[in-house]
Design a binder for these strands. Sequence first.
DNA 1: CCTATCCTCAAGGAACTGCTTGAACAGTCG
DNA 2: CGACTGTTCAAGCAGTTCCTTGAGGATAGG
Lengths: 223, 223
Amino acid sequence: MGDRGAKDALFDGFAEVAKAMGNGRRAELIDVLAQGERHVEELADEIAQSVANTSFHLRTLAAIGLVTTRRDGTRIYYRLTSGRVGELWAALRDVAAAHHSEIDDLAAAYLGDRSRLEEIGRAELVDRLVAGDVIVLDVRPLPEYTAGHIAGARSIPIERLAESLKAIPRDVEIVAYCRGPYCVMADDAVRLLRRRGRAARRLEDGFPEWQRAELPVEMQVAS
Amino acid sequence: MGDRGAKDALFDGFAEVAKAMGNGRRAELIDVLAQGERHVEELADEIAQSVANTSFHLRTLAAIGLVTTRRDGTRIYYRLTSGRVGELWAALRDVAAAHHSEIDDLAAAYLGDRSRLEEIGRAELVDRLVAGDVIVLDVRPLPEYTAGHIAGARSIPIERLAESLKAIPRDVEIVAYCRGPYCVMADDAVRLLRRRGRAARRLEDGFPEWQRAELPVEMQVAS
DNA sequence: CCTATCCTCAAGGAACTGCTTGAACAGTCG
DNA sequence: CGACTGTTCAAGCAGTTCCTTGAGGATAGG
């Protein structure tokens, strides 16, 4: 029991999982897949890489067991193997934000100035949803909304928000949400809405966190 | 807000943290440091690497912010920057065990057959400690015991267990613990004790988990 | 059966990682 | 101060990772 070689091999095994997450493009893939399953071409588009390279990264994640596939016709859908993978990703992000000093600057460069974006907590949003005096907008791409969204939310992908404004009542507060704390879509939505004179706030973090908190969720059932 | 380059850079930043954990030797270092602070020479010995290489790995972890240092005389002590790093490590291990199919075999090769080692849960041990009808043995190396241990536990590093047997009362059940679920020291202790006719069980997982569960802990205060 | 679509695989080059050796650098203590 | 101890740094090589290109499957549908 317990010789050096076997111990090294075991810890190399653990490290392989970290290595699988240790690439920016794969990290982005995990972040997208935490929203729900997607097929290769969509994923390639999301991370702005060639299909071949995206496929390669997905195979890498699959080899370690972090993602699984399902075929539907000619397409192959990838998804996270379980919710724990999403939790691990969230834990990694949190530790990075807390201890890796560069993250602050990188986040600021990507997200811009958030000081004027008011946030709303999950608990408060639950109350407001019960009271019914709020409109919740899911500004993620449609496939992510379809795969699962906050119960009662309306899908308006961020690119369509400007043209869909008229359909949103004027006198109700709007809450926008997207993928999580490092996602700009809800930020952009809130900025746009406020510029047009609407009362809008951003949900602190996004759909995966809402789902992990076991708050009410709806999903399109395949018919 | 939200151009591609900035997004890639941010996710590369997250990935750097995973990359820092993505090496077997560094994973072992984190596992040891989760027990408490140690200096470079001891750490090199623990992971069976040269001091130079160990120092290099520690610098890598420090550059990302996962570990911090403190000088004491001519020695430099490294420790995890916060308990969250330990939690991230535990989450990584759990996901690896759950989804990375090779881990089962690697763990079996390192740990051997555990089917005859009875385990005791944390909750039950707390009760037994209150009742006072159990002896708890910390079989980790002494510096780890000194840095922190289960309240009421006795330090008998595994190499000294055989020679220290006489000092342990015969008619009380013994519970041994060490670093965590993938540590063989408590296993070896329980096997030895049972061979000598003692009633012995292994605590499920180890000291870091006990500490995270906010159960009673003691530590040597520098005098 | 043939074609179109979607995905994966293989080869190759540039960049990075991990380990070793030997030298250099603190601090500390006599 | 000067020698010593513990730690870090630098160079260098072997091995791995990442992305690109282009070819090679697999499935669905005509």
